[in-house]
Write a protein that binds this DNA or RNA. Sequence first.
DNA 1: TTGAAAGCGATACCAG
DNA 2: CTGGTATCGCTTTCAA
Lengths: 330, 330
Amino acid sequence: MKERPTLEEVARRAGVGRGTVSRVINGSPRASEQARAAVNAAIAELGYIPNRAARSLVTRRTDSVALVVPESEERFFTEPFFGRVVRGVSAGLRDSEVQLLLAIAQDRRRLGHYLTRQHVDGVILLSLHGEDPLPGELESRGVPAVLIGRPLTTPAAYVDADNAGGARLAVEHLAASGRRRIGILAGPQDMAVGVARLAGATEALAAAGLPADLVAYGDFSEASGAAALRELLDTAPDLDAVFAASDPMAAGALRVLRSLGRAVPGDVAVAGFDDSVIAEHADPPLTSVHQPVEAMGTAAVRLLLDRIAGTAPDRPAVVLDTHLTIRQST
Amino acid sequence: MKERPTLEEVARRAGVGRGTVSRVINGSPRASEQARAAVNAAIAELGYIPNRAARSLVTRRTDSVALVVPESEERFFTEPFFGRVVRGVSAGLRDSEVQLLLAIAQDRRRLGHYLTRQHVDGVILLSLHGEDPLPGELESRGVPAVLIGRPLTTPAAYVDADNAGGARLAVEHLAASGRRRIGILAGPQDMAVGVARLAGATEALAAAGLPADLVAYGDFSEASGAAALRELLDTAPDLDAVFAASDPMAAGALRVLRSLGRAVPGDVAVAGFDDSVIAEHADPPLTSVHQPVEAMGTAAVRLLLDRIAGTAPDRPAVVLDTHLTIRQST
DNA sequence: TTGAAAGCGATACCAG
DNA sequence: CTGGTATCGCTTTCAA
């Protein structure tokens, strides 16, 4: 377990002063080629690695950002969404010397206490519900924050998928394939995603000259999707297509249709949202709106790093395109 | 953006020396009740938070552990497994002041370079394949490592689910419900999980006095499960149950059975492994072996923290129980 | 039990 | 362009 060399030893080995070594390491232009070469040689030879703690102590930067996830949102952990975001965030950090800290927020108070400039340079917040006071608190303490998922009302920097656009794509696809009685299984309207997906679907119906009279609400769960579809079938037995605001809701719809003996897509076409493993393994496999989750994570870090560097607008938003993955259910 | 107070200011406010403040903060017994009270009051009043960098600089500990995930294993990110592990690890760290660093390993060399005592106190490694040289490298450099998932051959500290036991449970369940021609859709035999699940299944067959002649192999994927089942049906058209080493494989089997018009569970019972969202949403919902993934994460940190503290055996292993979630497919 | 003083390893400013 | 020096905020002797 050999001890790591310090900057001072590098300086001695290279026959230069500590200042010079530091300049070379941090890519300062004020260093002669000669010095640069000597220092780099010494670094390579000694296997020198700068001590983050020491650096952080004087620069007052931590070179780390936190990804904060509310512990209460069990969905995050049992759905692939979380992993994909993490992967995207990590990819965005790849070439940047910045570390990713994971903060699963058990206790909001304690977390707010912890997330200071002393510990992180910035924060990415994974939030489902729009009404989180945390980003505001952070910003007011000088800690840049970026949300993944648009907040419902609170203004903040965020990255999101084009949920409305995705819903539009799906409904357009249903209409284009000749469906005329298209039902919408909408998500909860106290979340931005729920609102946006319904809005997009409604728009597409209007554009196709179809009525938007068949709307029922759920909470994104399978059971709620099943219930919502039953509700729609009560008023419109002639329904020939369904757009669900989530894949589990679509799966619930499939279940109901099967139990009723209605063929999919023969009698009723079904489209979901998220292009998740559920869509892929459903019977029949579900046409579903695909979100670029990894890209959202990457965009979020990029935005955050820009904000930390002070080179980003104060409250920027990035909205990424979705596309439709077409499978056998439509 | 108020500046955080330093320890020195706390000392001044409390009317004691810096040494005393430090002792109180770190719970040293060598501090009078009086001093303790004064210091704590000052800390509360000033909102003091110790500076990790400064502390780390002198203690030579980082108070952080890394969770390392091979980037190449796309499975990790698109399956809930990853999120659940993260959640468990995070829960294990909850009361410990230790931070969780996420390292998605793009480049093994660079990562090995990075993971020194200077940056982390220890490492948790999420590895699918058994042949990872990283843990060994780390240990030899004095960085404690704990694997999640038993390595195939390399000796190392690890936490794992009782894969063999889980497979045994599933096959026992099939046999107990009167099935006599039970096929095994095994996973790849170059992974410890694949080996263990097949071993457990075989054991259970033997214990039930049934032959273990119906075994076909796959790679855990849906397609491979479908292919493997077709293979078994060729030689044993009278097959009346299948145990698959993964849920996707089981889903593949369901698909084949459906296309052949065989009823599940009427004609053939099907059991999977992982109790994933796929099992839950399959048609019919799959009986599947449940692994305590969160608990594995928690156990892994606990083990790691013990090793860091030097209070754990040198190469300990923790194996956690699985259970069977029974659904309609059996 | 306590305070004072000496570092931990880096950066940043300074004069040269 | 360069080397020395002060400094970041904390822990840890050491002497009192």
